[in-house]
Design a protein around this nucleic acid. Sequence first.
DNA 1: CCAATAAATGAATGACGTTCATTTAGTTCC
DNA 2: GGAACTAAATGAACGTCATTCATTTATTGG
Lengths: 239, 239
Amino acid sequence: MLGTQAAERPPMPAPTPAPSTLPARRRAGRPTAAVLDQDGITTAALELISNKGYNGLTMAALARSLGVAPSALYNHVGSKDDVLLLVEDHLAAMVDVSAFGSEPWDVAVRRWAWSYRDVFSEHTPLIPVIAVLPVANAPKTLAMYEAVTAGFRDAGFPEEKIISAIVALEAFVFGAAYDVTAPEDIFDAGSLAEQVPNFTAAVDRLAAEEHARPTDVAFNLGLEALITGFGALREAVSD
Amino acid sequence: MLGTQAAERPPMPAPTPAPSTLPARRRAGRPTAAVLDQDGITTAALELISNKGYNGLTMAALARSLGVAPSALYNHVGSKDDVLLLVEDHLAAMVDVSAFGSEPWDVAVRRWAWSYRDVFSEHTPLIPVIAVLPVANAPKTLAMYEAVTAGFRDAGFPEEKIISAIVALEAFVFGAAYDVTAPEDIFDAGSLAEQVPNFTAAVDRLAAEEHARPTDVAFNLGLEALITGFGALREAVSD
DNA sequence: CCAATAAATGAATGACGTTCATTTAGTTCC
DNA sequence: GGAACTAAATGAACGTCATTCATTTATTGG
């Protein structure tokens, strides 16, 4: 046996020349210990996104950061969208739903929505993926929905309206997440300013208020309206 | 002169063999009459999107539908994103702002928001582009904002809150546009249903209502809350 | 009339996601 | 404990796409 194996080996072109610090290229074939798994891929993807942004998240770069050939990734994910889904589900777990069950309904919704927006405003490229993606493939996302749903139910929300209310809030959150990423001068009409006097005046009037983050003002305004409006749908509960 | 030109021509390999119906391939060099302009590109892009969807909108396909080489497009647009911006601005002109100035504020907002959502729910791939894009490059979009802003002002809306309110409404509209495109079974928890009992129950309860379009129910719920909430910000006007 | 510019072609490039044949190692079954 | 099967890696290749560039031809402005 040993003889056979040795005989089949190529004539030894220096079997690890020295204990160098180089990445030590792996030879083809299944490695003794698995190099990849979904957790590792998720972590590496998040790291890459954090350092290079979503433009830097390519399958090649991801593989590189994991010390692996790009094709190896496809043993663990079906596509790049699968990677995005892994990232999304990881982020969903970071959304703060802790106030549901401990705080009054409106406080809990407020905390959840702000947290949800803040998390995804750094990850807007995920939104087109999330918005269309069945929750069955995203357990942590599902857990978030469960916590929110339970919070609404316990607050006396009529059951047939809970999902609609969550969907509406989520739509607002996703749209607002985009707004966070918009450039400051997005509403500068430039040379066309004279043709849109009311708009220009309103933009200037808001600028005069010198809010640190106009996007936060808009989010607050909309969120409070939604909370007030939805709060009125609740039935009496002893709390 | 004429002699010189004639002498430089190749020896006539049949100068349009017959008035065939073939596309008649254009020879290199500037054509006598311009083939492309931004309007034509916009129209062709919309046609392509309508027939093949956004996956079918490639620079090559666009060029093909215009009977032109792909590189020719770059004499008229700087990038594919520029094409998307042209499309976006075209769509903005289709959003119904006609009720501002003729109908009560709440009716006008309702008409505008529904129309805005309906238009862009067929064009969600534009949303990431729009959300970040300075309005200065989109005159028809700017015109829409002007109409809405004027409507808010005339309705007694405090000027410093107008832009924030529009931004919030727009965020909701964009998020809701995505929701329209979601598959029906997006909330089916599948094998994880047992682990999320409240959520599953709420999903089932909504399904029991048998609404034609659940996404419309959610949009209506959120929009009415926003209209009510924002309506309270208005100062008294004689109308 | 001549120089500059505009608008087309066509060839080439460089990312990028993905597939496939191949190699090697672990797992299961008799 | 060996054979068959499966899992996990490499590396080469592919196809699609947006974009660039040299070149050609026509129009325009001084």
